[in-house]
Write a protein that binds this DNA or RNA. Structure first.
Lengths: 232, 232
DNA sequence: ACACTAAAAAGTGTCGACAATCTTGATTTC
DNA sequence: GAAATCAAGATTGTCGACACTTTTTAGTGT
């Protein structure tokens, strides 16, 4: 079932923060899909959703259009839209694409590193270290910490297209898999060490090494997943 | 100025090939933008475009929404849409992303190669060789042949996400730069030899080598572009 | 002549209604 | 009894109109 929280109605002068109703619908629906409140594979009824969000079908359709471009729903002409299905294959494909893109991001981050980026990365690492020491690597670190790490590395790549592709497109799919297949892998300790080494390579300005380490890091997660999937 | 060719009107029972009016508008506009009939950076007026294509603003807006997701136009709330600007930096960013993704595609193509894919690749290569011998590597080969090559390698990767990201998203941006900055580089001969070696690596099932060769191939083009840009 | 203000024109955002299409379930036919 | 047919209901695609914003233009005063 989807989020019942209503989006502020159009026309109300309330602080609509310079974003259109369709924008808010898009954001809200994206959240519902990613976090599993709209079940994967379930059909989407335009009239019903429009009523639930108290919006017109037109605005809703604009939001759906954008969800489609994100690959979070699938639309067929004259038939309708469904939330995308999750599959082991899809997850593995996602990891291969991430390996390629984040490897490159890491290389670029190392080659173009700025003092500001370095400071932030180092700071983040310390924060994660504290967190890890507090709760002996059980779980907390992985979902948020790991995401944080990858996100910031990509930001530091200084390549707008790369940043957009990963942070505004692919990562929503990643999050969807995390939420729904519950990927709290037991790699917390190891992942943290790998993160450390990657940031060291970036600090050293060694793009080639940084890329190799990042690719290995992602590939290790992939293997982990692949093993779990084959056990099912 | 944009394409004046009218899209078949809604309601006419003419063969509209199971695609909606918004779909056709999207395809038509994408073509106009990629091929430069809508100048980069120019403003887009919804009423005017709707009149020109003889469609309602609603359908047109759906098309614009999708062009926005493709990164071919930029929209600001309550202000409007503009065709995206081209820049040297943007082109170089594009090459870095392609290097990462097509490198991976090439690796996957080598690892998962099927007889059908191999046959097609080999066949394509022979076609290009004939073409190249005919017209001593002047120009014809590059735009179409090169595109063909990269396109088919990606198809052979067998990774839906990768295929979609490259063929349905990034390549339109590539084409746009090709058309408008006229990238008929004089690398035809060399490019053909490189293509040959890449396909050999794929045939041999050597994913690592195939990836390295593809990345080098793309990086060489990138250097070529970077040099030209710095001379301006 | 220049800056500022205010009206008007144009453009975008949103909505409700109609037309075309698909789906469902009952009816007919072999 | 199963397959094919057809009508009713629901859903999607498309449109034109209205409300609110932004931009342009005309006007006023210094």
């Amino acid at each position: 079932m989807a989020n019942t929280e209503q989006v502020t109605k159009a026309g109300e002068k309330a602080l609509q923060g310079t974003q259109s109703l369709a924008d808010r619908l898009f954001l809200s629906l994206r959240k519902d899909i990613v976090e599993g409140r709209m079940a994967a594979g379930s059909k989407i009824s335009e009239p019903e959703l429009a009523r639930r969000f108290d919006a017109s079908r037109g605005s809703l359709r604009e939001a759906l259009m954008r969800l489609d471009s994100l690959g979070l729903i699938e639309r067929k002409v004259n038939v309708g839209a469904r939330v995308v299905e999750l599959s082991g294959r899809g997850l593995l494909e996602l990891y291969d694409v991430r390996e390629a893109l984040e490897g490159m991001a890491c290389r670029l981050a190392a080659e173009n590193r700025s003092d500001a980026d370095l400071a932030e990365l180092r700071q983040m690492l310390e924060r994660h270290q504290q967190q890890e020491e507090l709760q002996a690597g059980t779980a907390y670190y992985q979902p948020e910490g790991d995401f944080d790490f990858h996100f910031r590395i990509v930001q530091a790549s200084n390549n707008e297209l790369l940043i957009d592709t990963l942070c505004n497109k692919l990562y929503y799919r990643v999050r969807m898999y995390r939420y729904q297949l519950g990927m709290a892998s037991p790699r917390a300790h190891r992942a943290f060490r790998e993160h450390s080494h990657i940031i060291e390579a970036i600090e050293a300005g060694d793009g080639e090494l940084a890329e190799i380490l990042m690719r290995r890091h992602i590939r290790a997660s992939r293997s982990n997943i692949a093993k779990k999937l084959s056990n099912t």
